[in-house]
Design a protein around this nucleic acid. Structure first.
Lengths: 359, 359
DNA sequence: TAATCTTCCGTTAACGTACACGACAAAGAT
DNA sequence: ATCTTTGTCGTGTACGTTAACGGAAGATTA
């Protein structure tokens, strides 16, 4: 039962009821000083009684304060994936522009921790209202987080999560669970009696952080250790992709071995490298599962060389990160701290409905 | 290159540049009469040059017009599924309330075409600004659509699509493709040599429309006819669920037959009925694929009796339907006519990330 | 005792837009 | 010649809020 009979009550209504001026009500609402305890409480009570909610439109029309949301993510050169969250971030920015919000986007080199630190400091010096970043370098991030806490600057983690922090929110995927799911998918397609060998391939750049990879692998392996599958053997395989031949050599080795793979799980978005190998060598009947909707991956999915891509709707992660700060700063709403993206299963037959981000 | 040096130009800036008053500019903007051709063109040119965009906040603060969006969908009693789109619709309503938008929600009995017509007429009489409905009854919908066209009332289809209409937009799933995908999933898990029998089960209520079902079945069957699978046999099975024993009898029959199923595809959200049968009769090693995240379905998915649920993010469909009318009516943006939802593949391992709708 | 300082509070001009009202000219009617 | 009509256009008020400004008491100081 809402008493919206009198349509919409505003600041001047509560002023009338409390026998004060709107100026006083305003001071109470922004709990500024210059108002006596008694009248403050009285006004507060009227506000409560009438169920006053501020008109956001009038609010941001009249207000002159600008909000700046700073964003720090890897540059697209070092990791094409980040184009996606950025899309969502930009979309959100467009929507909250009317409320005097603007963005300040900075990027760092994924293989260079120093660039991360430098950009972060620049941002802190510019004194933003909120901060979204991917804390991919653990130690440097701890330092940064410490500074944010001191400055009382609300910050949001995107993609990567660090425990025991006072971050406003986190948007990302449950990496362990995604690996677990990949394993289940793999088993569903493969295990029909007989022995099978499955390889976890980790194509990585030695200078870049590997946080996600290990969690995904962990989930994958956990699945097979829990679910009865005595006939299945899991092998792990690190590959340095800064050397261009390393991957081919490694794959050659296992293909020629006695333990030929029935399935390959590539724990990051470089699954297209493995797919290219399979295509070139005309290897079929190998289930290939990887991550993320990069253009190259999509092509191999459509060709049928990659069977499944695990995806995390990164655009939405970006979008919601921005919105969470908007909710916090402007709407004064409480926001959920943990926000896990869905673990989307993409195959040839449904890919077309995931490639166009629209909000 | 944007010339936002002078920050934000408003109606009074263009008034100044055009040497007229803001009243005149306002008349031009709303192309009302009472403006001479020459000044109108002049103002229009200035508007163009300065790249004026109206301030939406100020606009809806000053404007007294209310928008009403009418919604007509099946009631939750006849089909629990519709709770989900409704959630999204309500979420969207909450967001655009500030812009003077309000909802008017009506429901009809899924098994009663007359109730659809009656409610539709009520809505038309209330003279809404926009109309969202599920045109599940073909003939009645055609009549309704005709009326909407005459009234110049913008209307949006949700869930079901009717061709050759002037609907503003459609939000739903590509049903054929979803069946096609289900088939691919089925094949991936089942076909490993040997003969298999797969049944398409259609639990239906004789008085309710069956539009979706047939399309989903079509996609499913098409897949197996296209993809080489000579060892796979597809059988079709209609079941009247208004009789409580019919389903059990039918399933008993095929389970005892020589052509025992390796897989069951249930083309609608009643897959839990089939799951319950399998559970009760302790039948394992049958792949069961169905539709939609109803509570009952989710439970059987978690138990491992249903392997996959195909889902279409119905909350988002509802949400976006409302937003499309907002874009059209208020922002005067052009909206896409066809909006297909992703075909989400849900299994035990990722279900938890799909059950909480948050925008 | 007068002057200054606090503390509290009301008034008012914005913010950008919508729209009713009235002003003022030119054109027509009497 | 005066009076009305018509077509243009400017002015003023309103929407709900913010925030600067200033006024009226009482409290403190000289």
């Amino acid at each position: 039962m809402k008493k919206d009979a009198a349509l919409k009550i505003g600041i001047k209504d509560i002023a009338k009821h409390a026998n004060v001026s709107i100026g006083t009500v305003d001071r109470v609402l922004h709990n500024r000083s210059e108002v006596s305890k008694t009248t403050r409480e009285q006004v507060l009570q009227i506000i409560e009684e009438l169920g006053y909610t501020p008109n956001l439109l009038a609010k941001s029309l009249a207000s002159k304060i600008k909000y700046t949301i700073a964003v720090l993510i890897p540059d697209l050169g070092s990791n094409a994936y980040w184009e996606k969250p950025l899309q969502g971030i930009r979309a959100a920015a467009l929507e909250i522009k009317k409320f005097n919000f603007e963005l300040q986007i900075a990027t760092f080199d994924y293989g260079n921790e120093k660039s991360f630190v430098e950009k972060a400091n620049e941002i802190l010096n510019s004194n933003p209202s909120g901060f979204i970043f991917a804390p991919v370098f653990y130690d440097s991030s701890l330092v940064l987080i410490e500074k944010c806490d001191q400055l009382q600057l609300p910050y949001v983690f995107i993609d990567v999560f660090i425990e025991n922090c006072k971050n406003l929110a986190y948007f990302g995927q449950n990496s362990v669970q995604s690996g677990y799911l990949a394993a289940s998918l793999m088993k569903y397609g493969i295990v029909n009696g007989g022995i099978s060998h499955i390889y976890v391939v980790k194509p990585l750049n030695p200078s870049a952080p590997v946080y996600h990879l290990s969690l995904r692998e962990k989930g994958f392996i956990t699945y097979f250790s829990q679910v009865a599958a005595s006939q299945v053997f899991i092998h792990s395989m690190d590959v340095d992709i800064s050397s261009s031949t390393e991957l081919v050599k490694s794959l050659d080795t296992i293909m020629e071995s006695a333990q030929k793979p029935s399935g390959l799980f590539v724990a990051n978005s470089r699954v297209h490298l493995v797919a290219r190998y399979l295509e070139k060598n005309k290897i079929e009947n190998v289930v290939l599962i990887g991550y993320d909707l990069l253009q190259e991956n999509v092509e191999f999915l459509e060709k049928g060389i990659i069977q499944f891509l695990i995806c995390q709707n990164p655009e939405e992660q970006g979008y919601k990160s921005v919105l969470s700060l908007f909710n916090h700063l402007f709407l004064k709403k409480t926001v959920d701290k943990f926000n896990y993206s869905p673990i989307d299963i993409i195959m040839k037959e449904n890919i077309e409905y995931y490639t166009n981000f629209k909000i």
